[in-house]
Design a protein around this nucleic acid. Structure first.
Length: 605
RNA sequence: GGAGCUGUAGCUCAGUUUGGUUAGAGCGCCUGCCUGUCACGCAGGAGGUCGCGGGUUCGAACCCCGUCAGCUCCGCCA
């Protein structure tokens, strides 16, 4: 137990002292300890017990002179809860255990009171062997005794405390917003809660306190924050828990994008410096436009530590003899290249695997050229002229021994495929896990073209302020309009999105008009927001970094469950509490609900 | 909704490629021995519907089909 505090002061009949805090300073003084039997070593004539509490471990010694005490100790099992009294004694020279904080001393026990006999556990606490997720989640209360995850939860508490402290210093006000609220028409699927008092009507759990925090700005609170639970009925990922998660939800009035960046950078720098050994690559965080990040990294959440960049080679293939590339030199399409220095002489398998990955990412294939000492090699070489190859070489800075991979097609999908390859090839490099490479992704487009619906849609939050405001909406081609919409990204993980909001009703009507909504429809769907903005709304903006992801990054965890005390599994079930579960007919009746399950298909599968 | 990986003792895993007597190991558990260990040591013992169902076969943990569960990815998701 590495990171628990040292301000344990409570002294009562159970304990007056703490295992991890004992040191030679307490030599020969009587102590009263309580905790779990971490390990027992029974030598027949002498028994050692490692006692564990929240602060750490301490070795107890039980000598055979007290027969009753010795018999008690003999019968103890791992994870039983005991309270002991004894005397702190220095360990003999050579018997010191440098791996234990309390390793210079041990406690000669004079009294043992067993508070709880533990039966054999489904999995060991002391040996932190890999255990199946299923068992760990079912017996989460045992899993949480294990040092690593126990420390993660303590660390998370420290992070939230530090965030509160930092933001309160900056005049932020913490305000709780409702959990039972109304369904919002945009975004993820809602969790619904039936209303007993209003038959046939439902509350929805908030996907985020988005509208509330904006309304708090209208109410004149200049800076709001909340460690806010958010509920979205969407599927899980390693970095995304199903159902519910926490955001450090923030909103500020009378600010511009750069003001918000400065405050958030300050908070993250503070957390990193005070809570970790990690180091931030660049400060202030680099700002990269959406278009640039897609062109260079092929994703809007790049891991900037990977020393690879995608390059554009579209102009080089205008009129090329290789039709697949030449056909993608038209507007809206592109040809992209990704160079791997010194990887031009790998086995055929290396390139085949890369192509397989590209196909998994949705590409038709993965053209490549190996620049070997004996000349260029690869499936597309035969389509290219000598001149094309040398232009390529000088344009991309290619040398003998290098390989270049190509992607061609529609701009966005090609960028994404090459971005997927960039992060796949990222495994070839050793990334410094003590490095936090933060960046802001800015200048997201306000609108995008929806191919299926053949219409213009909002590409992100419809309440974001368009850059250039009304003038831009009236005069610019819609797809060229940018929004004050930004993401903060660290090491390939998106921590949060945020935006400067649109607080002007007329601009909102205009923006919704471009996306095909009439004034009446907007009033119907977002009437209360628009109404609020007609009654005196300050300019405002905000962001909401994911707390779980922030803790993951600071603790080097790859799975979000490792930083959540009681997480659900991938199927959004709580295996410990058996949620979700069926309810009684009486409960359903009171809520005016009737369950109709889908019929299972008969016969063969 | 789709794809991949995994499923053998309480736990972690070997055995499956190439079907063949009674399915193994370490830890844990039970019994005994052991006064300086710290993953204590030593001896003995118990513990299995090989996820489940069906099929092929003289014979299935192993091959085939289906199904369930867990994880990872795509879709989805601020």
């Amino acid at each position: 137990m590495g990171i628990a505090g040292n301000k344990q002061t409570l002294s009562n009949r159970f304990r007056a002292d703490y295992c991890g805090l004992l040191s030679p300073a307490r030599e020969l003084s009587p102590v009263r300890l309580a905790g779990w039997v971490h390990r027992k070593r029974d030598h027949g004539g002498l028994i050692f017990i490692d006692l564990r509490d929240h602060t750490g471990l301490c070795q107890l010694v039980i000598q055979p002179e007290h027969h009753e005490l010795f018999t008690q100790a003999e019968q103890l099992h791992a994870e039983s809860v005991i309270c002991v009294e004894g005397i702190v004694v220095p360990r003999a020279e050579g018997a010191v255990n440098p791996r234990l904080a309390s390793g210079e001393i041990e406690v000669m026990v004079s009294l043992i009171a067993v508070e709880s006999h533990a039966q054999p556990l489904p999995f060991p606490v002391a040996d932190e062997v890999q255990t199946s997720e299923e068992l760990r989640l079912k017996y989460r209360f045992i899993d949480l005794r294990r040092e690593k995850i126990h420390d993660n939860i303590i660390f998370r508490s420290r992070v939230t405390a530090a965030i509160r402290h930092y933001l309160e210093e900056k005049d932020f006000i913490e305000i709780q917003t409702p959990i039972l609220t109304s369904s919002s028409p945009e975004g993820a699927r809602d969790f619904l809660v039936p209303s007993r008092l209003h038959p046939g009507k439902f509350y929805a759990l908030p996907q985020a306190p988005q509208q509330f925090k904006q309304l708090l700005m209208v109410s004149g609170f200049p800076r709001y924050f909340q460690i806010a639970p958010c509920f979205r009925d969407e599927d899980a990922r390693a970095d995304r828990s199903p159902g519910e998660f926490y955001q450090v939800d923030m909103e500020m009035a009378f600010i511009e994008q750069s003001d918000l960046f400065a405050i958030l950078e300050g908070m993250i720098e503070h957390l990193t410096r005070t809570m970790s050994q990690k180091c931030i690559t660049q400060f202030p965080f680099p700002r990269i436009s959406y278009k640039e990040v897609m062109n260079r990294f092929g994703t809007d959440k790049p891991d900037l530590r990977i020393p690879l960049e995608i390059q554009d080679v579209t102009p080089l293939f205008v009129g090329s003899g290789f039709k697949v590339f030449a056909n993608n030199t038209v507007a809206g399409s592109c040809v992209k290249a990704l160079v791997l220095k010194g990887r031009g002489n790998e086995s055929r398998l290396f390139y085949d695997k890369a192509e397989k990955r590209a196909k998994e990412l949705g590409s038709g294939g993965l053209a490549y050229i190996q620049f070997k000492a004996e000349g260029p090699k690869g499936p597309v070489v035969k389509f290219l002229l000598e001149a094309d190859l040398s232009t390529l070489k000088s344009h991309l800075g290619l040398e003998t021994g290098d390989v270049v991979f190509f992607g061609a097609g529609k701009w966005e999908s090609t960028c994404k495929i090459m971005g997927g390859m960039r992060s796949w090839f990222g495994d070839l490099f050793t990334l410094d896990k003590e490095e936090l490479s933060f960046c802001w992704i800015v200048d997201f487009p306000m609108f995008e073209y929806n191919e299926e619906a053949k219409k213009i849609d909002f590409s992100h939050n419809p309440f974001s302020m368009p850059q250039g405001e009304m003038e831009a909406l009236e005069n610019m081609p819609p797809l060229d309009i940018l929004a004050y919409q930004y993401d903060i990204v660290c090491n390939g993980i998106e921590l949060s999105s945020g935006a400067i909001r649109n607080h002007k009703p007329e601009i909102m009507y205009k923006a919704f008009g471009i996306a095909g909504y009439s004034r009446e429809e907007v009033d119907q769907r977002f009437g209360h927001m628009i109404e609020a903005f007609k009654l005196g709304a300050p300019p405002h903006g905000g962001i909401a970094p994911g707390l779980d992801r922030l803790v993951m990054i600071l603790r080097d965890e790859l799975n979000i469950r490792e930083v959540i005390a009681f997480p659900m599994n991938q199927q959004a079930q709580d295996l410990m509490m058996s949620a979700p579960s069926e309810v009684t007919l009486a409960q359903l009746r009171e809520l005016h609900l009737k369950v109709e399950l889908p019929k299972k298909e008969e016969g063969k599968g």
